[in-house]
């Protein structure tokens, strides 16, 4: 299900403060950001710059201390947990840096997981999963558990799972961090193809220059603030 949205993501005055005892850590400060549907955006910056925090909040996994975040036309700060879960299920795909897969499910079952929660029929799920696994080059590995796959193969399963139900938005947090350069290039190429073919919006956090080279738009963060935002 592809949702047509003019603004996939809109952030207004978003700040995030983590309290550590009496110490307040400003992870994000006054972020204003618009990401249109179909964009392929890289968030770059050093560790602690706020990339992951911003992704977490856009994905509805964390709540902004101040400001508004709108995803798929819905204000996240107004939504209860159960609606946030539905929003993630229906509109957002996630690719994490590591520990992406459910260990007790096979590659195919991991890919089917989201579709199953969405209530898609078993036959259709299987067809979709097999197609997408073929697309990410994992034909013949459908029945392997995560422990039987290499890091690169696991990331490709995660990408397959994120894209299989064609969400409007995919959030990927350092998806190539544990991959060698060859696998990293393959994965980024795949995501760019999906972006071009299906129009899925991608927001990818990275500090890898090789990954940034794939971006259509590069947003640099430093100490929780946007320091540059440029189309490439």
């Amino acid at each position: 299900m592809t949702i047509e949205i003019t603004n996939a993501v809109k952030c207004r005055g978003v700040s995030k403060v983590f309290s550590q005892g009496e110490l307040a850590v400003h992870a994000l400060t006054d972020i204003d950001l618009d990401i249109a549907a179909g964009e392929f955006v890289c968030l770059s910056g050093s560790s602690g710059s706020g990339k992951t925090t911003l992704l977490n909040m856009i994905g509805g996994l964390d709540v902004a201390t101040t400001g508004e975040i709108t995803v798929a036309g819905k204000r996240l700060d107004k939504m209860p947990m159960s609606e946030l879960a539905d929003l993630r299920l229906q509109h957002i795909g996630f690719v994490f840096q590591a520990y992406n897969l459910i260990p007790v499910l096979s590659a195919r079952e991991n890919v089917e997981f989201v579709m199953q929660l969405q209530g898609i029929e078993a036959d259709q799920r299987r067809v979709n999963a097999m197609e997408i696994l073929q697309q990410v080059g994992l034909t013949g590995m459908e029945d392997r558990r995560p422990a039987e796959l290499s890091g690169g193969q696991q990331q490709r399963v995660a990408v397959a799972r994120a894209i299989v139900s064609k969400p409007a938005l995919i959030l990927a947090d350092e998806p190539t961090a544990n991959l060698d350069s060859e696998n990293s290039d393959k994965l980024m190429t795949l995501m760019r193809e999906l972006n071009s073919q299906i129009g899925t919006t991608f927001i990818i956090s990275t500090h890898d220059e090789g990954v940034m080279a794939f971006a259509k738009r590069l947003i640099r963060l430093h100490d929780g603030r946007i320091v540059s935002d440029e189309a490439i």
């Binding site: 994905g59 996994l61 947990m81 159960s82 879960a85 539905d86 929003l87 993630r88 299920l89 229906q90 957002i92 996630f94 994490f96 520990y99 992406n100 459910i102 260990p103 997981f113 989201v114 929660l117 799972r161």
Partner: peptide, 16 residues
């Protein structure tokens, strides 16, 4: 804990 966080992030509800 991490798996539970993962399935929550993927959209599984608390009741499930």
């Amino acid at each position: 804990t991490r798996e539970i966080g993962l399935v929550q992030a993927l959209g599984m509800k608390s009741t499930n």
